[in-house]
Design a protein around this nucleic acid. Structure first.
Lengths: 250, 250
DNA sequence: CGCAGTAACTAACATATGTTAGGTATGGTG
DNA sequence: CACCATACCTAACATATGTTAGTTACTGCG
């Protein structure tokens, strides 16, 4: 499945995507890094398109994506699906579920994935470390900012801009956990999944992708995306990475 | 401006909407209630359509809506506006801004409003109370759930369903802070603002409202909404209040 | 009381996107 | 190597919503 030459030489493993992500806020002491790295050690392997957790459930532990992709989604009565977030390595599925008690949406893997199950008491240990606690707060708030950005994307951009914007966002997020190579990254989404995230039909996603390819903007096949002119894609889609709050360092 | 007969006899004032909202999670001790009530005491009066805070700013205090309505929004290069949230009494504007440092969107009043400015040290005092801290967490997570719900609304529902869904959501939220009267509440939005929240044009909002009126579903004029058949509106829009996490009590 | 600004409303027409119904490539599997 | 499932791709046509360009109704204010 991995595209030859696309994966970085030493792909992050275990909890290292999480560490890279949380260190966006500030470098962490070795002790914290070790604690985080240990989280990924006995993660479970899951097949593609399996539910990690479903609407209405009340889990007593937290799920962390260690490897692979997943998506939050909601189903409508008529069977339509809306994806509300893509989860990549280092992302938590349900960090604060104990406060809300019950999931109001479902989460499923999109690819084969490694998912860590973190018991509640272990989460409390984590939160007791000030550096980690602050970084987890930051991650939660960035998730919220991404949701707002998606609302703008779906509400006010046409399909061409919206798809471009999504590609830029995922590029920046993947880069931030060390999973890009130049301007390429594994983007294991079907055209239907892209449509379900953007509120458009797969037929229309296909039309837009054809156009982007014919313009030489991108290559996208077999689960991998290459952006040939990143600046042009940013401009065409009105992408501004400020909402990801990555440049925290002063 | 208030509609005669629509306001409850004793309209909540000061921080009482906030108290009502936070007590959704669990009753608070009198001491906590007094602390919260005091927050609203010296709130500032603001005119309609004034910015409370703008994208890029780094405030050193937190804003709380005590009275009136406000909206989060983002502007696109072409001047289009997308509203990502409506804020009603009891809602915080920027509860955790110190962690992200910089606003990634703007917030403006929609009506005349009272806005409390809460200094950072006072917020820390608040967070030191376990009951309040937990309730603030809950409020943050519900905000996030509402964002997900809006994504579904904008992405997968047609204009008729989306407008109905928004009316249901605001009904439940207003009711939860004691600002409804039967199935009526003050909804001081222009048709353009509704469109900016749902990603549609004011012309189309108007078409849909005409239809809803002609069906006898609602009355909506002069900033007040009456839902004549709430159950029908819920059904027509696929509204399910579970994502507001209001039924927390066991 | 008349004016000006804003919001509501409407009609005629344009179009981005949806729908339906396929065909074609690809990859895993027995 | 044939088969099957899945994803990709395409064309023809349908429609929800957008666009433009107004008119009409309020409301606050001088």
């Amino acid at each position: 499945m991995p595209i030859p030459g696309l994966q970085p030489e030493h792909a992050p493993s275990g909890g290292s995507a999480l560490i890279a992500k949380l260190e966006t806020v500030a470098p962490l002491p070795d002790e914290d890094r070790e604690t985080l790295a240990a989280l990924g050690e006995n993660a479970r392997e899951m097949g593609a398109r399996r539910n990690i957790i479903r609407e209405g459930e009340r889990p007593d532990h937290v799920h962390l994506i260690v490897e692979g992709w997943a998506a939050r989604y909601k189903l409508l009565p008529d069977g339509a699906r809306q994806i509300t977030a893509f989860l990549i390595p280092g992302d938590f599925c349900d960090l604060h579920i104990t406060i809300l008690r019950e999931m109001d949406h479902s989460i499923a893997t999109l690819t084969r994935a490694k998912v860590a199950y973190i018991p509640r008491d272990r989460m409390e240990t984590l939160s007791a470390r000030p550096g980690i606690a602050r970084a987890l707060w930051w991650a939660t708030l960035v998730d919220e900012a991404v949701l707002r950005s998606w609302i703008v994307n779906i509400g006010r951009r046409d399909a061409y801009e919206a798809i471009g914007h999504l590609m830029c966002e995922l590029y920046v997020r993947m880069k931030n956990v060390g999973l890009t190579h130049d301007h390429s990254y594994e983007l294991p989404l079907t055209q239907e999944e892209v449509g379900d995230a953007l509120g458009i039909t797969p037929v229309h996603v296909n039309r837009v992708l054809q156009r982007m390819r014919s313009e030489g903007l991108i290559s996208f096949a077999r689960g991998a995306l290459t952006i040939h002119d990143y600046q042009a894609l940013e401009n065409a889609s009105g992408f501004n990475p400020n909402y990801l709050h990555i440049d925290q360092r002063v």
